[in-house]
Design a binder for these strands. Structure first.
Length: 261
DNA sequence: ATTCTTACA
DNA sequence: TGTAAGTA
């Protein structure tokens, strides 16, 4: 039995692919101890340690080209700096993942709330949190809703695909699109916390939304609920995944109730 | 049977 | 990075 390992044996030992070992060689960071007359790469204990070192750096997301420099010339202090940078990145990743986990949980909650709403949808009184919004696009011009105008109006620092669009219809007929204000952004409209009459609906064509709003207003009138007349329709494009491309709206009507705070 | 090189998505 | 072809 030979004391040196073939590439497949080394790959198995270190839990990496054969391809990756050859890739490291191509990048000039891991050479075989020797190659036999059959041109097979053979690896010894020294290469195992070196590969360990490489894999550690790679796990810290050091690119192969940087690993080459590190292996050649890094001093202890350089590694300390590198590890500190890594921690910064790792913590950023943790934050990003926690946000993603939160958003994903929200998605499931919204899905649950959606299933709870009947078909045809119920009108229900729900308590909603305070929302601070920034004016995005004035609505009356429906021509503003083509792809290019969206690009022209693209909000900074906002991922459109997970943005809740607030279509706000004022009692006086004014209509505009709002999005959640970013911290430090302009607060153009504040929806106070309180009781809202809420109706959820998935619609395929634009004018169905108006009909749903009429339903909600009609219900409020029939039951004798008082409100300011401002209607907010929250469009959540990401909810379409549950419903074959239909757009999901949550229509909200702020109620002026005694004890509604 | 295994590895090597090269090419490609 | 993984996968495939064609060799040695």
């Amino acid at each position: 039995m030979q004391t040196y390992l073939t590439i497949s044996e080394l790959a198995k030992l270190m839990d990496v692919s054969i391809h990756q070992i050859r890739y490291f060689e191509e990048k000039g960071i891991l050479n075989p101890a020797y190659t036999g007359d059959n041109h097979y790469r053979m690896y010894g204990i020294e290469e195992i340690y070196r590969l360990s070192h490489i894999l550690l750096l790679r796990e810290l997301e050091v690119p192969a080209s940087n690993i080459r420099v590190a292996l050649a010339s890094y001093a202890a202090e350089d590694y300390e700096a590198l590890l500190n940078r890594s921690i910064t990145h790792i913590e950023a990743d943790i934050e990003r993942l926690q946000r993603l986990r939160g958003f994903t949980g929200e998605l499931l909650q919204r899905r649950a709330a959606w299933k709870h709403a009947g078909n045809p949808p119920d009108n229900a009184i729900e308590r909603l949190e305070k929302r601070i919004l920034t004016r995005w696009i004035a609505l009356p011009g429906k021509e503003t809703f083509d792809a290019r105008s969206l690009l022209a109006h693209k909000p900074n620092r906002t991922a459109l695909f997970k943005t809740d669009l607030h279509l706000v219809f004022e009692a006086d007929g004014e209509a505009a699109l709002y999005i959640a204000a970013v911290p430090g952004g302009s607060a153009d409209l504040i929806l106070e916390a309180g009781d809202y009459l809420v109706r959820r609906a998935a619609i395929a064509v634009e004018d169905e939304l108006e009909r749903e709003i009429e339903h909600l207003l009609g219900y409020a009138a029939a039951v004798g609920l008082t409100h300011s007349g401002t209607v907010v329709a929250v469009e959540r494009s990401y909810m379409s995944m549950f419903d074959n491309g239909k757009l999901h709206y949550e229509i909200q009507l702020a109620l002026s109730l005694p004890g509604g705070e």
